[in-house]
């Protein structure tokens, strides 16, 4: 039979949809506005310093990591909420699925496009972050060389070494890596919600709630273990078992306090992220595959 060549899942098609998704988001206003805001806020940290008597480097690290996490989450939540509803509402999905495209390729393509764009966004913000750090370093080094602001009994050499150790901190890389994988989970959750809800606003609210709850899971789990009151137990149980533990991805606080986080723990957390994302996407696939479009 002429038309019987078998047809399998293709990463080329998946990537075609992913690349198009990136184009779609990049050509929208909200992305530029959020990104621009993010960049402005990062740069703002330099000027806020004038008012701050805190340790400069510590402050920049703290502030920038928080800003990256915040704007990353904002872009993820808003961007993901739109991905599927717009396709269904404008029916742009019709001519796509009329081509030999699996629905799974479409779904994963959308997801991949979003997380690829996030990767680029985080890279950009990290580069700015690094630039700010090095700018501060040159200032601090100049101060140290001139002997300004040296503590009692600290030599210039020691001061220089201290500044460098504080700025060139490999731990920061771990923190940003974990922020990224946290956003990947949020993206998967957003896609899952969008497979059954059609309103963009509803999706944004839902994903935001899960995002916030995700940061409370650690506390909630401790509560669940110890708490004896029956009334709150089922609710907490849901929170503990279904909501992703996003707090596990937040190592910024520990880092700023000077504690170090082992690569082992980082990888363990990323593995958890992969597992959770995989399960969420699998559920999303089953819903989307049988959905009437």
């Amino acid at each position: 039979m002429s038309g019987s060549q078998r047809h399998f899942f293709s990463f080329y098609r998946l990537w075609t949809i992913a690349a198009n998704t990136m184009t779609e988001i990049v050509r929208q206003k909200f992305f530029y506005i959020l990104l621009l805001f993010g960049v402005i806020v990062l740069i703002l940290s330099l000027f806020l310093l004038e008012f701050s008597h805190l340790d400069r480097v510590k402050f920049i690290k703290d502030f920038n990591l928080a800003a990256i996490a915040f704007f990353g989450a904002l872009i993820t939540i808003v961007g993901t909420a739109e991905l599927l509803p717009l396709e269904l509402e404008n029916r742009t999905i019709y001519p796509i699925l009329a081509k030999p495209v699996f629905r799974l390729e479409f779904l994963l393509g959308k997801f991949t496009g979003m997380i690829s764009l996030l990767l680029l966004t985080l890279l950009l913000m990290s580069v700015i972050f690094a630039a700010l750090l090095f700018y501060t370093e040159t200032q601090l080094l100049a101060d140290a060389m001139a002997g300004r602001g040296l503590a009692e009994g600290v030599t210039v050499d020691e001061a220089v070494r201290q500044v460098k150790a504080q700025v060139r901190d490999a731990q920061l890389f771990k923190a940003i890596l974990l922020i990224y994988f946290k956003l990947v989970i949020v993206c998967a959750v957003g896609i899952l919600i969008a497979t059954f809800a059609t309103s963009v606003v509803f999706n944004v609210i839902c994903t935001s709630i899960i995002y916030i709850c995700g940061h409370l899971v650690t506390t909630a789990r401790a509560e669940w273990m110890s708490n004896q009151t029956v009334s709150s137990k089922p609710m907490l149980g849901i929170l503990v078992f279904f909501i992703p533990d996003l707090d596990a991805f937040n190592i910024a606080d520990a880092l700023v306090l000077g504690q170090s986080v082992s690569w082992e723990l980082v990888f363990q957390t990323i593995r958890y992220g992969f597992f959770y994302t995989g399960v969420i996407l699998l559920v999303a696939h089953f819903i989307f595959d049988s959905k009437e479009i």
Partner: peptide, 22 residues
């Protein structure tokens, strides 16, 4: 129901359901 059935099919939809930004 099988995706393979659409390998050699072209479809012009009733309305232009295409991406405005492309």
């Amino acid at each position: 129901e099988s995706v393979s059935s659409r390998v050699s099919v072209g479809f012009l939809p009733e309305n232009p359901y295409f991406y405005k930004y492309l």
